[in-house]
Amino acid sequence: MSNRSKKAPKIMKCENKFCAGCGHSLFDRILGEVLTEMNIIGETIVCSDIGCNHMFQYSMAVDVIVPPHGKMGAALTAQKRVRPDKYAITIAGDGGAYAIGLAETVAAATRNENVTMFVMNNTLYAMTGGQAAPTTQLGQISASTPKGRTEKDHGLDFDVFNVMRNLDIAYLARTSVANPSEIRKTKNAVKKAIEKQRDNKGFSLVEVLVPCPTNWGLKPVDAMKRIENELMVRYEMGEIIDK
């Protein structure tokens, strides 16, 4: 073994069920690495969303609870309050966290609950076949915006930074998984977010731009290029709250 050695941590217990080039599986491994390095797998209970994201349950050896779609903000609140010594973390989808669960997400943030949300933003609802989400970009074609999203017909898209930048929360960041450098930033942000919870600083949210080659109709390599050339340009990247 060299000091360059890299091996998937044991928490990744088996093959995942995601499509080729899926961003969820990249993120899950990053989270698995952080939980392993922080040595907190046994102190962590992950709250699942419902959507492609929830398939982490099949390949990660960590305790999980699965409330209804989008209700992670509420469930995490309860998790942390009944077991303050355990980490309350969610891997959410953008539809779950920002559409059906927006009330719960924002309410948990406004209360500054000491919990951590990782939101996978792939700009659509993937599991149901690629319909528009709040994060679908203007002009983007989806199964429910067949001619592209327009401001007139579908309204503006959602940016969590605009909603949360003035809240009294511990950590807010946006990263991606588009290339090795971004993956390192994501890992760093994941670690920092969980450390905020460890240090009782309050609410942390990391939005991760992830590809959905299947529903974007792009090859995995081109899907990563879309993130680099379009999404990372359109969105403000990096940490905007770090208390």
Partner: peptide, 18 residues
């Protein structure tokens, strides 16, 4: 050269850098 990029970018845990 064992840069590890393949491990980092692989969603399916194919690679182990020794």
């Amino acid at each position: 050269v064992q840069c590890g990029n393949c491990y980092t970018m692989c969603p399916d845990l194919v690679f182990e850098i020794l």
